[in-house]
């Protein structure tokens, strides 16, 4: 039983770091530096509203509209801002396009910089030492672990994010997707395909 009074006569004690976070929250709230309601809103936004669906929308639009794609590659920050995707960790966005000649993938060797407004919070592996170290050193091996195999003739370029510049990969539009609508295309765009550790889904 998760709520057995014999096991927990008092409220369940949270883990040590959680107590320290609560201490900081109390200090900052009492000083008027943060507002608990605003914290809930931030969490709700990142948990429910911001995610890879935003990036997928941008990619699908680029696949459907050549003028949009050209503008996106030219100045991604303002183009995606017009779609409503801006804010923290999206300040300076660069979109790089995959081609038959060059596959691109993104890493942050410094910490975990990531285009939040378009992809949400990065997955655990993106933040791991293993990925951060190996993406640069042996990208093809890392890609193979993600089940991505590329033709020998395709070069792999790795883009290292910083606190100032975030990258989004524009994957190649999959074969068999001709004639699909923007909404149908967006479903093919996976999070990993926009980090470069995956490819878009192929239409059934």
């Amino acid at each position: 039983m998760p709520h057995d009074d014999h096991d927990h006569p008092h409220a369940l004690l949270p883990p040590e770091p959680a107590l320290r976070v609560k201490a900081l929250e109390t200090i900052l709230t009492r000083k008027g530096l943060i507002d608990p309601a605003a914290l809930d809103e931030i969490i709700d936004t990142y948990q429910n509203k911001i995610g890879p669906q935003n990036g997928a929308h941008v990619v699908a639009k680029a696949w459907s509209d050549p003028a949009f794609k050209a503008a996106l590659l030219e100045d991604a920050t303002s183009v995606v801002a017009e779609l409503g995707y801006y804010g923290r960790q999206g300040e300076h966005l660069v979109v790089v396009e995959n081609t038959p000649e060059q596959h691109n993938m993104v890493v942050c060797t410094l910490c975990s910089c990531y285009p939040w407004p378009l992809l949400g919070i990065p997955p655990g592996w993106y933040k791991s030492d293993a990925y951060r170290a190996r993406a640069v050193r042996e990208p093809r091996k890392v890609l193979a672990e993600f089940s991505v195999t590329l033709p020998e003739t395709t070069t792999v370029r790795v883009w290292d994010s910083t606190a100032e510049i975030r990258y989004l990969i524009l994957p190649m539009r999959p074969a068999g997707s001709e004639g699909m609508s923007e909404d149908e295309l967006a479903v093919l765009v996976t999070r990993d395909s926009m980090i470069g550790t995956g490819l878009p889904k192929v239409p059934a």
């Binding site: 883990p15 959680a18 976070v21 900052l28 931030i42 969490i43 923290r88 919070i121």
Partner: peptide
């Protein structure tokens, strides 16, 4: 995977973003 594995991960993230904002 969930965006935040533990509630305190979400809290410390939110406190930091709020202070930055």
């Amino acid at each position: 995977e969930p965006v935040f594995a533990e509630p305190w991960h979400a809290q410390v993230f939110a406190v930091t973003v709020a202070l930055n904002e």
